[in-house]
Write a protein that binds this DNA or RNA. Sequence first.
DNA 1: TTGTACGCGTTATCAC
DNA 2: GTGATAACGCGTACAA
Lengths: 341, 341
Amino acid sequence: MQAKLKDIAQKSGYSITTVSRALAGYNDVNQQTREHIMQIASELGYQPNLPARQLRIQRTHTVGLIIPSYDHVFSNEFFSQLLLGVGDAASLERYDLLISTQVPGEDEMDAYRRMVGGNRVDGMVIARTRQNDPRIEYLKQQKRPFVVNGRRAPGEVSDFPYIDMDSYNGIQAVVAHFASLGHQQIGLILPPENMAFTEYRHQGYRDGLRAAGLDYRPDYVVYGDLLRTGGYSNANLLLDRQPQLTAIVACNDLMALGVMRALQERGLRVGADVAVSGYDDIPAAEYANPPLTTVHTPIYEIGQRLVRMLIALIDDQALDETQILLPGALIVRESSGGQRG
Amino acid sequence: MQAKLKDIAQKSGYSITTVSRALAGYNDVNQQTREHIMQIASELGYQPNLPARQLRIQRTHTVGLIIPSYDHVFSNEFFSQLLLGVGDAASLERYDLLISTQVPGEDEMDAYRRMVGGNRVDGMVIARTRQNDPRIEYLKQQKRPFVVNGRRAPGEVSDFPYIDMDSYNGIQAVVAHFASLGHQQIGLILPPENMAFTEYRHQGYRDGLRAAGLDYRPDYVVYGDLLRTGGYSNANLLLDRQPQLTAIVACNDLMALGVMRALQERGLRVGADVAVSGYDDIPAAEYANPPLTTVHTPIYEIGQRLVRMLIALIDDQALDETQILLPGALIVRESSGGQRG
DNA sequence: TTGTACGCGTTATCAC
DNA sequence: GTGATAACGCGTACAA
């Protein structure tokens, strides 16, 4: 049997109220009384019953995060980093983290309704926004605190707190880098079309080419799936049709690794024959062979900052910044190759 | 304002009791009444208040998992896979997952006391057992359901439900494989000394050598940290002192990737000059250059099965198996090289 | 400084 | 079939 306030009250001779206040640190309780009570509490191994407390104070001290099912497949690295950032920052504020992985068959919104509508969390972290994201509508309508990793697609209004990476800039920097090495035929493997950030990257590519005086060619551009296998198959697709390409910009590191594998199977040297870049800078990028040029994305830090924003919102504190765009840093490694002849 | 039973009761004209029973699917309520009530509930967007329900029925429908702080650093892949397995299986049973990442300063057990003692979860999943693990003692003493990934170290009694991989066998298979290729000087990079599975792997190595008629040499063995950097530095350490080594067995893939990097920096060809193997078979292993020989470990599946075991325990069902040892499968790839001259 | 009384929203027991 | 009523464990206004 678990010890509860009542047990401590009986054993100490004080009322439940006094015990509650003593343990909660109220200063209107006699010092000796408090010590006595705390002594007994620790003897009994007292732990407050959290559901009861939550019901009473209407607060859970918990933030929620739902992992969409399609994320099981790709970008594990992304989610595990985000999760650790979110989890660490939450722990520091003594918040817990409630996770639900959405099961494939189920309506995505059910998980949100249970967590939010069921009062299991004080606020939500949303990741991987898509175009017309229904989760955001729901949370706005419920008037529950939430923060988002990723803004909406270009053209849509992002009227909510978010932290996003400036992937327009990131891809632009990659293209400028390749152009400065003398590349003129630069292919692009985009994320899936319905992801919010896809068009930003597409535009970054376009404008990067223009800034370098190069033409945009639609047949140099394909949509991938953010997986290694997607990089592999799309690189083959691209090279079958456009063998003149000397550089391939992949929109994440996993796809870039797949691209490298495809090149190597074709007997092409990564870097020397075809330059390759990724995006995200996951640990595997540095350890790839050759090491992968990429854009560093501070996912862990984004997770941390998101939670701090969220907790501030929950506590009704004013936020200094509610919409943050983080620049990515270009990391040049050997997969860039050298200056072109 | 959130709709509660009371609101539905008022609007429908029935009592809270009847509303509760109608929504819970009791069959002692009139069919028309039920439909009427369900209609109103959906109009009001009713969602049951979970903390209240939890308090009342003394069940949370939640399983807990605590991520130790040292795991932030290494083996992300391990934890993200485990987490997804746990999360998916939990979702299928309509359980949620409460995560706490232990903050570095805090006493590890505090997180467990809050989760378990605070009645936030019905049971716990424990991962990465260490020698003399205090978490297991605590949960046994609390008489709370729990399942463990990993048994205790050799010599200790594992009197609790677990699923572990048979890493004794796995490493033995690797050594046998290398020996069959003609290797006679085989180095080993172990996990940290205090991890429960370290000694199993050590013994697998020892017995694998003996089975192949090779001598065990303590100076061929070092302890790593399961990180890429640990593999890198330990490979250099090993090769500085024992340049005659022709094969290095690393106890996880990350370290193996670090070993490969060290070899390549020394101008040695992975496979041809020095064979390398890892353990776990994370996705990066297949995509390494050259692809990495390793032992496949079904972490995702282990996570799933652990949760199913745990939920069975919570529901007081009898388990057919409570202690499961899964064999690992040797995956031979190019980092093995070929037959030795 | 301490105690009494009440309510958070739900489910379960019992009577009608 | 349906409805009062109590209880889960806690926090807090108010009174003493």
